Structure formats: structure tokens, C-alpha cells
Amino acid sequence: MMATWRMQQRALCLAATAPTRIVTTTTPPYTSTSLTVRKVTSPNTPTWYPIVSPLLLHVREFHSRKFSRNVEFFTSSDIPLPKDTMQMASALSKDDRPLTLLFCWLMAKEKHIRKYAMMYTNMGMDVLKIRVSPFDLLRPTKGSQVAADQVLEFLHANPSHSPILVHGLSVGAYTCMEAMVKIEQDFAKHGHLLNRFVGQIWDSAVDIHGIPNGVSRAITNNPTLQRNIKKYLLWYLRTQYNTATIHYERASVKMHQNYLEVPSLLFFSDIDHVSTPEMNAVVYRKWEAKGYPVYTRCWKGSLHVSHYLKHRKNYEAEVLAFLERIGLTEPTRHLATSL
């Protein structure tokens, strides 16, 4: 079933005869300013999943289960979570459960991460939070790649956690792509996992060239320390090519080629010096050229990974509109008339 869904997604992407990047307006309805999205229907279109707008619900508490310092699971289900196992989905329901892989930014505060997690648990989705430390980033084989292995282990242990949405912030994009590198390196074992992915959201994504700026700004707000850390990281990238830089480059290739091969939504800002509009454009134009559906939103006056905190309602509306476009949620107009 999921292989069929994956094939449908690829067919819809490749059927496009022109790029489908959409810059949405700041107030509903969210429509294209230059292009029209093609509405595709077929007898094989998957049924709607029970996801609803967080704007229409009261905030619910969620439960969590921490597997390691890098990986934690969240759900709004009231069913007690099993212990000593990663098998969450089958314990919570006999049916498929949509899952969001939330790849966090460096030094993110837990209270901020939980806002993103709650956005999805309020929609009825489970969330797997993945975060790495600066040391994990600088020592990929002992840090970021260990976290990537844990993500793949979780997906294997929970085959009914499907479909899967990726939501990555800042260097979380790199962490996610480390998982993609591992899938390609052992495709016989991991390749079938790709069938479950249906969409990706990148918020302030950072490529290898943005690591010196991104890490230095994440560690401190002191301009002098930022400059010194940046100089060190530039030196580190030059001298530690075989132990670190080569891994960043391999992950970057996966991002630029859209290894997931699913529709994408990109958030960035006109004043973000870490994830610049130009840096994002290099990536999404490559995806557009291959015919993949791409949606973008450039926020005005919003700092790095602060778009949700500053524009919460519009951010949630953009996310929900994207989920509707990829068939992951019922159209909001239907929800509004049924409540």
C-alpha cells in the first residue's frame, strides 16, 4: 500500500510540466500569486487521515518517551506508552498513525521545541523529536550519525507509523540527510522506509556553507565570541576533511538532489544571515527543475528559526495548507463547515 502511495507521489511530481513554487499571501485564503496548483484526483487517492487544524482545537497535553539524549517520542494518546521498547505505534493503535520527524536546531530550548511538537500532536499526529549538540555535529561518526541510526531503528520498529512528514529546522536538515545517506548506503535494508515519506518542511535550513555562521550564532550572542568560533569552524572544516567535512558534503548532496522525492515547503526570512533566501533558492530551484512540487514562504523581519514564534497563526496555517496539498489532511473548508 505504501509503495503504491510512494509511486503516486512520484507520478504527481513528475507529471508537472512547470515548476510549482508558490509564495502564499499573509492572510487566508492561501493562494498562489503567480501559478495555479493542478488538482489531481484518482480512484487510488489515499483516504483522508484524521488530522485537523490546531487553530480549531483546544491545546492538549501530550505524553513523551525518551529513548536517548538525541531522540524523544511525543503523542497525544492517553494510552500508556510501553517501556523498554521502541515499538510505540502498535501499542497505541491497530491503524496507521501519521508521524512527524522533527529535526531540531542547535541549542534549542525544550519549551520552544514542545511548541512545534504540540502543533502536530494537536492535529492527531505523533512526533519523533531528534536533536543533536554542537559536539554531535562536529563529530559526525560519534554524534549525528548515531542519532540518524536511532531514527532508522525507530522507523523499522514502527511500520504502522505512516505516512511520515519531515519537519527540519536549521542544522536539523543536516541531521535528517545523515539518515538519508545511511538509507542509500544500505538500501536493501532501509530503502523501503522511503515509501512512507509524503512531505518535507524545511525551516531556516542550513547547508554545509552555513555551518560556521549557524553554529557560532547558536552557541553565543556575543559578537566577539561568534567571530572566534566561526574562524575555528572554518579551520576545522579545512583540516578535518576525512573525519567531518566529507560527511557534511555527502549529506548536502542528498538535500540538493531531494533524496526523499516528495513535495516540500520551505520557510526562510529576508534578514536571516544563516539561512539566506539565496541559499534556499539554490536548493529549491534544483528541485523545481526536476519537477518536484515546491512551496516557499519568505517571512519579513523574522530572525533565524524564529518564524513560528513570531508568526504563529500564519505559520500554522501555512503548514496546514501544505498538509492539505499533499493529501495528508482534510481540506480546512470541510472542517470548518463540519464543526
Score class of each variant (00 low, 15 high):
His247Ser: 03
Ser53Met: 12
Leu12Arg: 15
Trp287His: 07
Met177Leu: 07
Lys109Gln: 15
Lys310Arg: 14
Asn280Asp: 11
Pro46Gln: 07
Ile183Tyr: 00
Asp186Arg: 14
Ile271Cys: 09
Pro140Gln: 00
Leu339Met: 14
Lys111Val: 13
Ile211Cys: 02
Asn258Val: 07
Ala179Arg: 02
Thr47Asn: 05
Thr175Arg: 01
Thr24Gln: 13
Gln8Glu: 10
Val181Arg: 13
Thr141Lys: 12
Glu184Leu: 15
Ile130Cys: 07
Thr47Ala: 11
His58Asn: 12
Trp287Glu: 10
Leu56Lys: 13
Asp126Gln: 02
Glu288Leu: 00
Pro140Gly: 07
Val146Ala: 04
Met125Ala: 09
Thr31Glu: 13
Lys300Asn: 11
Asp186Cys: 01
Lys111Ala: 02
Ala3Gly: 06
Gly327Asp: 04
Ile326Lys: 09
Thr121Phe: 05
Thr239Glu: 12
Leu194Phe: 06
Glu324Lys: 08
Asp84Glu: 15
Phe154Val: 04
Ala321Cys: 04
Leu155Cys: 13
Asp149Cys: 10
Ala117Leu: 10
Lys111Ser: 06
Val215Ser: 03
Thr243Gln: 07
Ile183Val: 14
Phe62Ser: 13
Phe103Glu: 03
Leu237Asp: 07
His156Lys: 14
Pro293Arg: 05
Leu92Arg: 12
Val132Glu: 07
Pro98Asn: 01
His192Ala: 12
His192Gly: 06
Lys254Val: 09
Val206Trp: 01
Pro54Thr: 08
Tyr292Met: 10
Tyr120Phe: 15
Pro98Gln: 09
Ala244Ser: 05
Ser269Tyr: 03
Asn213Met: 14
Glu72Val: 00
Pro331Ala: 10
